[in-house]
């Protein structure tokens, strides 16, 4: 698979989305390029999930256009988006905890071999490919494809889900809060995997509200506040404090603290 590094894959132009009378997204403009990590930052309810759903084919924009490779997007379902190379990995990664690594890796695309007149699920091939794909992302502890997904750590599950997406030809990887439920060490693993995906030329959309994690891997940042992009900047253009302030709603954290303190003082008096 060859990727044209830096080429725009997905582009959102003037995208609005409303559900009935409620406007959720306003005039969103974003560019997502191969070999780049776009960090989508924002507080709960800022509209991050809606952006993901627009890109992964769950919803359609109310107005504005989304293009992929210059052609307008019109996906009927997440499956169709996945077929076009847009893969979404959710917070808990492996969603089939009681299935083996090999089986869950190939759900819906099981490898089969002929045994006499019967088509039989090829467990060995599935396990070998799945284990190799995960190991290529640096998770070398996974050696047995018969292990159940539920027995993996949170970071390993994310790795499995990302490896699966990449194996099946994803060009755009949407990671929805992949580090939110993880400890420091596990989160580091996931961030390393994000870097590996980027190195391979995938376009990564990394959704998070942890500024530290975003800064560790991001090339490009967009901060969403109440459905609009409050700020759009490149790596190194803003400090951590500035980003945190932006996410907190534009008001600087210091001002906020001062306000709280003066309020408290008022109550004490």
């Amino acid at each position: 698979m060859a990727f044209d590094m830096g080429a725009t894959i997905l582009s959102l132009q003037g995208v609005n989305k409303s559900f009935g009378p409620i406007d959720v997204l306003h005039d969103i403009n974003l560019e997502i390029r191969a070999g780049e990590v776009l960090c989508l930052l924002g507080d709960n309810g800022a509209g991050k999930s809606t952006v993901i759903r627009l890109l992964s084919g769950v919803h359609k924009p109310s107005s504005g256009t989304i293009t992929m490779d210059g052609k307008p997007l019109n996906f009927a379902s997440p499956r169709e988006a996945a077929d076009h190379g847009i893969a979404t990995v959710h917070q808990f990664g492996g969603t089939f905890p009681l299935m083996s690594i090999g089986r869950s890796f190939f759900v819906g695309r099981e490898p089969v071999r002929w045994v006499g007149p019967f088509k039989v699920y090829d467990r060995k091939t599935a396990n070998d490919i799945a284990v190799k794909a995960v190991q290529n992302f640096g998770i070398t502890r996974i050696e047995d494809g018969d292990r159940l997904v539920g027995g993996l750590s949170g970071g390993e599950r994310q790795a499995l889900a990302i490896a699966r997406a990449v194996h099946f030809g994803a060009r755009v990887l949407i990671l929805d809060e992949p580090t939110a439920a993880l400890g420091v060490k596990q989160a580091t693993h996931v961030l390393r995997i994000v870097n590996e995906a980027k190195r391979r030329g995938l376009a990564v959309i990394f959704i998070t509200h942890q500024v530290m994690h975003a800064m560790a891997v991001g090339d490009h940042f967009a901060v969403l506040i109440r459905g609009a992009i409050a700020s759009d900047f490149k790596k190194g253009e803003k400090t951590r404090e500035e980003i945190t302030d932006l996410m907190a709603g534009g008001a600087s954290m210091a001002t906020l603290e001062a306000e709280i303190e003066s309020n408290m003082a008022g109550h004490d008096a």
């Binding site: 009681l98 299935m99 759900v107 089969v112 699920y121």
Partner: peptide
């Protein structure tokens, strides 16, 4: 068969 894998996945 492949169907078996689908059944497990649906239950998961």
């Amino acid at each position: 068969s492949r169907f078996g894998n689908w059944i497990f996945a649906m239950g998961g």
